[in-house]
């Protein structure tokens, strides 16, 4: 299996870049590309203390697998791809998402990694609630999903 997709509950293992790079490594791969999403301390002028991630996990994991399959169709079925997204509350500096792509050459690895994050941000059933230093909390405005069928 050359794809790993996962929604990981915070409180269990934290997301780990080394784990992602290890998964996409292979003897035939000369390139590994990594993307890490991290909770930052400021958003639209408001000081952020942390973010809660709400996830519809079964549909999210299925969607991750579909996006990975699309990437393999575009850049080769020998791509090895790792996708893990956190579920639960993270403080500033916490890792919300880890993506990695391994391929024989760097172009495909960079392109696939970029494709994964851009598609996940607009297609995956995941919601962010920001918690601010002043004690307030707010759901982040997002992208409306498309339906097919």
């Amino acid at each position: 299996m050359n794809i790993h997709v996962e929604v990981r509950e915070i409180g269990g293992l934290t997301l780990d870049a080394a784990e992602a790079l290890s998964f996409v490594d292979a003897p035939g791969n000369g390139a590994g590309s990594l993307f890490i999403g991290v909770v930052r301390d400021l958003n639209q002028g408001r000081k952020v203390r942390g973010v809660s991630y709400d996830v519809f996990a079964p549909l999210a994991e299925q969607g991750f697998a579909e996006i990975c399959a699309e990437a393999q169709e575009k850049w080769g079925d020998n791509l090895r791809l790792f996708v893990a997204h956190a579920k639960g509350r993270l403080d500033v500096g916490g890792i919300s998402i880890v993506l990695a792509a391994g391929s024989p050459h760097r172009g495909e690895a960079f392109a696939a990694c970029r494709y994964l994050i851009e598609e996940i941000k607009t297609r995956s059933p995941i919601w962010k609630q920001e918690h601010y230093v002043d004690g307030d909390s707010e759901w982040v405005k997002g992208h409306a999903l498309c339906s097919h069928g």
Binding site: F56, S96, T122, H143
Partner: peptide, 9 residues
């Protein structure tokens, strides 16, 4: 499930 506009990543 009801899915409001999404904001993951």
């Amino acid at each position: 499930a009801i899915l409001p506009p999404v904001s993951g990543g």
